[in-house]
Structure formats: C-alpha cells, structure tokens
Design a protein around this nucleic acid. Sequence first.
DNA 1: ATCTAGGCATAGAAAATCTAGGCCTTGGAT
DNA 2: ATCCAAGGCCTAGATTTTCTATGCCTAGAT
Lengths: 108, 108
Amino acid sequence: MAKNEMLPGTLGMLILRVLQPGAMHGYAIAQRIHQLSNDLLQVEEGSLYPALQRMLLKGWVKAEWGVSETNRKVRFYRLTAAGRKQLETEMNDFDRVLAGIQAVLQKA
Amino acid sequence: MAKNEMLPGTLGMLILRVLQPGAMHGYAIAQRIHQLSNDLLQVEEGSLYPALQRMLLKGWVKAEWGVSETNRKVRFYRLTAAGRKQLETEMNDFDRVLAGIQAVLQKA
DNA sequence: ATCTAGGCATAGAAAATCTAGGCCTTGGAT
DNA sequence: ATCCAAGGCCTAGATTTTCTATGCCTAGAT
C-alpha cells in the first residue's frame, strides 16, 4: 500500500469505529478517517460507498436520510447492536494478526 | 481477517523479511512465518506460491533448485538487491499506514 | 450565470487471497 | 514388501476488496 492508500481488509473496521460515537453521513466518514489519521489515510468514495452497502446487508449499520449541517440531503449511518459486536471482533482480530506480523518483522 | 488468516497486502512483506537473513525454500518459508508469529499467522500454500511467482516476476527474489535437509528436491528463494530495497519500502509504508489506523482506532 | 465543494452512487478493472485440488518423493511403520 | 504420513511444488477458479472513472444532483459564493 503506497502513499495514501488503505491497508486492505481494515476499511470496515475503521468505518465501524468512526461510527461508534454516533451516526454520520458517508462523506463525513471519509473526511473523519482522513483527519483522525493525520492525513495518512485516504478513503476513496468508490471504496467507501460499496463498503457501506456491504455493511447494510450484513446488518452492521442502518441508514436513514436526513439533512447535513451544510443543508444538503445526506444519508446517515448508525451502528446496530450487531455492528458494535462486529467492531469488537474486528478489533480483536486485528490486534492478534498485527501481533503476529510484528513478531515476524522483529524476529526474522 | 478471522482466526489464522493473513492481513491482505502484507504477505509479500513477510516473505521478503523472512528471506532477508538467507535463502529458504517455499515450504520452509510458510513454516517459518507460522512459527515466528507464535502460530498466529498461517500462510496457505495457495497464497504462498503465487506470491513467490509474482516476486520472481518483479525481480525481488531469484530461485534455484536444490535439496533440503530432509533430502527432498526443493526450490530455494533468495532476495535480490531490488528485493532488499522493496522490503525496506514496504516496511516503511506499513509503519506509516499502521500509524494512521492506530490513530483512528484510538481517537475516534 | 457559473463555479466549486459537498454529496450519493455504480460499473468495471485489478489485485490478492483462499479452497480445493493434483502430483511427486522420502522414510518409517506394519 | 507395502502403505501411509509428511514434506514439497504448483495451478485453477471463486471470492473479496479496493481503485479508477464516471454520472448525477444541490447549495452557496462570486
């Protein structure tokens, strides 16, 4: 993964995490990830919206239309109970796998 | 990535890293990663060999046939200069992206 | 009036991984 | 002698995820 790319397989987790404190609309989710990561991560819209669709299908988020602070029609996404549980699972899995990777990188 | 899976996008880096100290054959590479990761990572052969092919094409490793300690005909892979440079690049990219992910996970 | 930024979405390509097989050899157990 | 497990290499196809490139619409500023 070069310059501003994502680490494949982690986008879902990041979205869930950003939604944890409360509902947000898609565009804002991407901005938030970019900002929280100190501009290190860049979520493309072509990755973001398909990811949100997948998460809707899995029942991890639900969506409802509303109006943004900037007075635009937007779609708010909110975590479901299943989504909260999924986030926990993904963060645990990530930590475990990351530990494995770090171990290899250090000891090899 | 569930139980013993890999984090997509990191397999190449792990292989390069494991080859850094010296040449190894494919089967041993998989075992080594499994062992160094304290059994956290499991490299499937169907992922390993295609990955090695890609790395051969890119010129990051070169291969030569030989005989293993267990007296079997094996293919040894060795890092090239380009491979060493590639490893460095991938590790830097990984650190940077990981920092971004951690930041999001912690601050969100 | 026009332009920019905000905003949602899809289609198609590209890449990486996994599942599931195939094939061969060595060495030990029966 | 035979068989079988483990050690090895490899490929085909499906699946999944992400990116590139679009298209379309609106609000507000110039």
